[in-house]
Nucleic acid binder design. Structure first.
Lengths: 128, 128
DNA sequence: TTCCTTGCAAATCGTTTGCATAATG
DNA sequence: CATTATGCAAACGATTTGCAAGGAA
């Protein structure tokens, strides 16, 4: 898998680094278009997939049917607001120990887990 | 939302109850077709969505891009095999306490969490 | 007879892919 | 020059929806 430089990819990567809100491919597309008006959605998807494959970014699936992307690849948990749908980073320790709990009565091999929390974010909570 | 009886819906519900492997809409379709050869995929989807909405069944999203369905609506965790993709029930206690952990440094309101574990199932593990 | 449900087909949504051309090393 | 990346449009898979006809209360 040989990589070549591409201004479009740089721009996508750079845009992602500026955001902490885990944008979708479409949001990336909208924003990158301000720099590259002719960039295609396909290119955005291709690069997001590529960057995720080489571990430069993380692909986040939170059950809303759309993939989100995160330039922060350090392991951390997410919170999804049921009201506004926003995806927020949680400041909490890793829970690797729950893999043990899960494996207690299981005959396979548990390698990890996906967890995300849901509820109301600070904004939506105070409004209601 | 007024419900009327439907043999197709009964059949879908009954089929789901016989299975512990969390079938997809397509699998339900394939099987229900043996009783109702003319049933349409649309009807299957409509009924699965309806049953999930009224809480008769659970819709399970495990990040493989396809929805799975479960007649067992009691809260429990799932395991997904990275090799064969099967979705397996885990025998383990509820981890409601991790909501507290997550909420410690969070200003919103955490109502719950989704967790699933991954690795190799018993079958695939012994084979490798 | 009301109105929920069906089958069918077309539509939608997010994402991927084939292809000829442009850019990179 | 050899290859990778791009833009465009068509293709894709899962799911939803509009509609006229069928079935339950």
């Amino acid at each position: 898998m040989n990589l070549k430089h591409s201004k479009q990819r740089d721009c996508i990567m750079e845009f992602l680094s500026t955001r902490k809100d885990h944008p979708t491919a479409d949001t990336v597309y909208m924003n990158v278009r301000q720099t590259f008006p002719n960039i295609s959605l396909g290119t955005v998807y291709r690069n997001l997939t590529l960057l995720a494959d080489i571990g430069e970014i993380a692909r986040i699936r939170v059950g809303d049917g759309v993939d989100h992307f995160d330039a922060d690849t350090s392991p951390h948990y997410h919170f999804i607001c049921k009201e506004c749908g926003s995806v927020i980073d949680l400041d909490m320790e890793d829970m690797a120990y729950i893999n043990e709990t899960a494996g207690k009565h299981f005959d396979g091999c548990i390698e990890g887990h996906f967890t995300y929390f849901y509820g109301k974010c600070g904004n939506c909570f105070t409004k209601s």
